[in-house]
Write a protein that binds this DNA or RNA. Structure first.
Length: 641
RNA sequence: GCUUCCAUAGCUCAGUAGGUAGAGUGCAGCCUUGGUAAGGCUGAGGUCACGGGUUCAAUUCCCGUUGGAAGCCCCA
């Protein structure tokens, strides 16, 4: 027998195994704030979670977003309840469900220790065992303020709510929380919980506010699901680019060089060079013209561009020289504006595509630098495209297609398009000209719709000069970061008084499209490492072929092969150490070399190689020519493994 | 930058309740010449991140600096 709690807090009972339609009927009659159900073969097996506040029928499983959120949100209340029991002086702030789990923020005297967290987890388990029913009730604003008078953060939240509306609360035993819901029926429905971590977090996400203590946790209806989740987290840690970067000698850092300043080792540098050539060639084929511009610039350049006002906190401090002030550039847009301005352009010349692999410097806060993902000196795959207003659409489309074709070459699937818009209320951060912004944003939406690209919108993520289309990915450790970006800019052409001569013989102002396909080579490599888990496809692998002679007698042959391969542009190494073949194979396999060539007396005799591939294992002996042709063909086609 | 935590051999980590340290792996030498995921022996390697303080004595306790981790803030 399963109880369903109705909106008036009465309960109805249904038999396990009734059909969805029957449940729907009962619910619609009773206007329940229902329900989450386990459904097997069309029959309701377990109505586990009360969900909906506004009387709509929804039958969900834990796999569905809303069900998870309700489950985790309820667990966050249990955590708050546990904290209040153990730390009666703690003030509670907010405790939402997030993409993976939940957190709750507390204002406490001292940050939580590991021991505290263990105790909280134990107390949570007790609360679950108590199987407290969760009840919803509503109050007027006045009553709500009275009820929460000892919780200053709740008072602040209640005061922000509109006058005259009912304010909902949820109560479970000795704990009541201001909450819009939804929640599940009782604490006993939570099965497996785990406190994951804790850290400081600013109240309302503003560094101007007090730092509270946030505890993250997660819960599942089955212990095996929790274990699966923890295994996934562990798997993600295994492909962290910082870990693989060290193991495969891709890059290193040194405290004498400084934080956020990685050094590329030969293996990482090889991959980076391939990426540079790859994208530059692709751009050249689209009529991009590449330039070199200096990393140091007079600070007046950025005052002219407007960057100085919006960006100076993120720049390294000014270097005062004899009678000029120099800065390390945080971006190279202004340089490209000046290159455009170097001569007079006709509308016939447009679009003009100026590209550069440009080193830029940003003073990232010490807490946010991360391997190759966030660095203080980066190399951008940057370009600025100067277009007439009429060309915006076609050029934007060209850029989006380039992005998609590049992603196809790399075999990427897990990315999303984000339309990054300004925060209309933030006149500080964004260039203040509503008409320009509205126009640019409308144009971008139109283009995206026309291209049939799925995207989501994010306010407050634009550049100071205009809206952008960003490609977002999730890193191994869950950071949401931008890889590619394409931005529409009406401001810099104005700042630099850019012009072209139109068909009418008069001067017109071009529009600038900023774009970075690989974003920065640094972040892109960090993404590649995690995407491939260190097993780079052949065309990117630092060592493509490793030759493993079985005994000393094959060293000469092995080295001759190496030379031959090198002449063909294949990246090859010989492992001529005094070790057994099995040992060498194991090591080469663990270092993710795409091809191993085992050569013994037989191969020397027959001028063949015994091929072992990373994915396929032992493939037997073939002539060296056949192997070389195959490798070259796979490199040229950028074969993905 | 903020909150918390961390720093021991090239790497991954033990350890010292305050008396200057160990394993595995890697590296070097020797034996072994072995056919598709770890052969054996021997050896070298550490100012226990750096700078102060407390102490008879600090790698260990305290403070600071640098670097690192998680999250917050911020961003390619």
């Amino acid at each position: 027998m399963i109880k369903i709690i109705l909106k008036d807090d009465s309960k109805m009972e249904v038999q396990e195994g009734i059909t969805i339609l029957e449940v729907a009927q009962k619910i619609s009659e009773g206007l329940a704030r229902i329900a989450m159900a386990g459904i097997v073969d069309g029959e309701v097996k377990d109505l586990r979670y009360v969900l909906n506040n506004d009387c709509k029928l929804e039958i969900l499983t834990f796999d569905e977003e809303a069900g998870k959120k309700a489950y985790w949100h309820t667990t966050s209340h249990i955590m708050a309840q546990a904290v209040k029991r153990l730390f009666p002086d703690a003030k509670i702030a907010i405790g939402p469900a997030i993409d993976e789990g939940f957190y709750y923020d507390f204002d406490v005297e001292k940050p939580f220790t590991d021991e505290d967290k263990a105790n909280i987890e134990e107390e949570m388990k007790k609360i679950i065992k108590e199987d407290l029913p969760i009840e919803r009730f509503v109050l007027s604003k006045k009553e709500a303020l009275e009820l929460m008078k000892d919780e200053p953060y709740k008072v602040e939240l209640i005061e922000e709510l509109p006058e005259g509306e009912e304010i909902s609360f949820y109560r479970q035993g000795d704990f009541t929380d201001l909450c819009a819901g939804p929640h599940i029926v009782s604490t006993g429905k939570i099965k497996s919980i785990k406190i994951l971590s804790s850290s400081g977090a600013y109240w309302k996400g503003s560094e101007k506010n007090k730092m509270l203590q946030r505890i993250y946790g997660i819960s599942f209806p089955k212990a095996s699901l929790l274990q699966e989740h923890l295994d996934l987290l562990e798997e993600a840690r295994q492909r962290d680019h910082r870990k693989i970067g060290k193991e495969q000698e891709l890059f290193m850092t040194h405290e004498l060089v400084g934080s956020g300043l990685p050094m590329y080792l030969p293996n990482g540098a090889t991959i980076r060079r391939i990426l540079e050539r790859y994208i530059a060639d692709k751009e050249t084929a689209l009529d991009y013209k590449h330039v070199y511009t200096p990393s140091l610039a007079n600070v007046d350049l950025y005052k002219t561009s407007g960057h100085w006002d919006h960006y100076k906190d993120d720049m390294f401090p000014v270097m005062k020289m004899e009678n000029e002030e120099l800065v390390l550039r945080p971006m190279n847009c202004p340089h490209h504006m000046l290159i455009y301005k170097n001569k007079l352009h006709s509308y016939r010349d447009l679009p003009i595509r100026i590209g550069e692999l440009a080193h830029d410097f940003r003073y990232e806060s010490s807490g946010s630098v991360c391997g190759l993902e966030r660095v203080r000196e980066m190399c951008q795959n940057d370009a600025h495209i100067f277009v007439t207003p009429e060309q915006i659409k076609e050029v934007f489309e060209e850029v989006v297609k380039l992005i998609l074709s590049v992603y196809e070459d790399f075999g990427f699937n897990n990315y999303t398009f984000r339309l990054s818009l300004r925060d209309k209320n933030d006149k500080e951060k964004y260039f203040d000209n509503d008409e320009m912004w509205d126009n640019a944003e409308a144009q971008l939406r139109e283009i995206l719709t026309e291209l049939g690209i799925e995207y989501y919108e994010a306010e407050g993520e634009a550049a100071f000069y205009g809206p952008k289309l960003d490609v977002q990915i999730k890193t191994a450790i869950g950071h949401d970061v931008t890889i590619s970006t394409c931005q529409l800019d009406f401001l810099l052409p104005q700042r630099f008084e850019l012009e072209y001569i139109g068909e009418d013989g008069k001067a017109h102002r071009p529009v600038v499209i900023h774009r970075a396909i690989l974003g920065t080579f640094d972040r892109f490599l960090s993404f590649l490492i995690e995407e491939y888990k260190g097993a780079f496809p052949l065309w990117l692998a630092p060592t493509q072929v490793k030759i493993l002679p079985i005994t000393d007698n094959q060293h000469e042959y092995a080295h001759k092969l190496k030379e031959e391969f090198m002449k063909k542009g294949i990246r090859v190494e010989v492992d001529d150490r005094n070790e057994k073949t099995g040992y060498k194979i194991r090591e080469a396999q663990l270092s993710k070399v795409p091809y191993m060539l085992i050569v013994g007396a037989k191969e020397v005799e027959e001028e063949t190689v015994s091929v072992r591939s990373r994915e396929g294992g032992d493939e037997g002996s073939i002539s060296k020519k056949v192997f070389i042709d195959r490798v070259i063909e796979e490199i040229e086609n950028k074969k993905l493994s």
